[in-house]
């Protein structure tokens, strides 16, 4: 096992572990937050970074047995999944929240004022 392989393996392990850590915090937040607007805060953000980090790790590991054309194509495809989710995740979050807001559901608040103007006068 050459030194390059070892370095590659360590980088892959670190990337995928951080990705899974963010997935786990997203899931914990998804269970703990009080209403679904806040739950979307947890899932919409953590899933995006989790997918981007883990896909980068998997794309690096797909190159581990040589830089042939097939391997590079597979790696590029995995990176496209990451880019697609980077653009699509926030859009899906926004669409779901938009439909909930239009249906007239207001968020859980402490003081009962749901919508406030910004900047305050």
């Amino acid at each position: 096992m050459s030194i390059l392989t070892v370095v590659l393996n360590i980088v892959v392990i670190v990337l995928i572990s951080f990705g899974v850590f963010f997935f786990a915090t997203g899931t914990v937040g998804f269970l703990r937050f009080p209403d679904f607007y806040s739950r979307m805060q947890a899932t919409g953000k953590c899933d995006t970074l989790g997918v981007v980090l883990s896909c980068t790790g998997v794309a690096l590991y797909a190159l581990h047995d040589g830089l042939s054309l097939g391997n590079i194509l597979v790696s590029l495809k995995i990176m496209f999944i990451a880019v697609f989710w980077f653009l699509g995740g926030p859009t899906a979050t926004h669409a779901l929240l938009n439909s909930a807001f239009k249906s007239g559901i207001l968020p859980w608040t402490k003081d009962g004022k749901a919508i406030i103007e910004w900047p305050p006068k």
Partner: peptide, 29 residues
């Protein structure tokens, strides 16, 4: 900014007194 956002959410989600820290609102600008 995304990395900052994730650390922020992770801190909130794993904090034992999470309900005191958050104060959600809809803001219009």
């Amino acid at each position: 900014q995304i990395v900052l956002a994730n650390i922020h959410v992770a801190k909130l989600a794993l904090h034992p007194r999470m309900n005191d820290l958050i104060d959600p609102h809809i803001i219009r600008f």
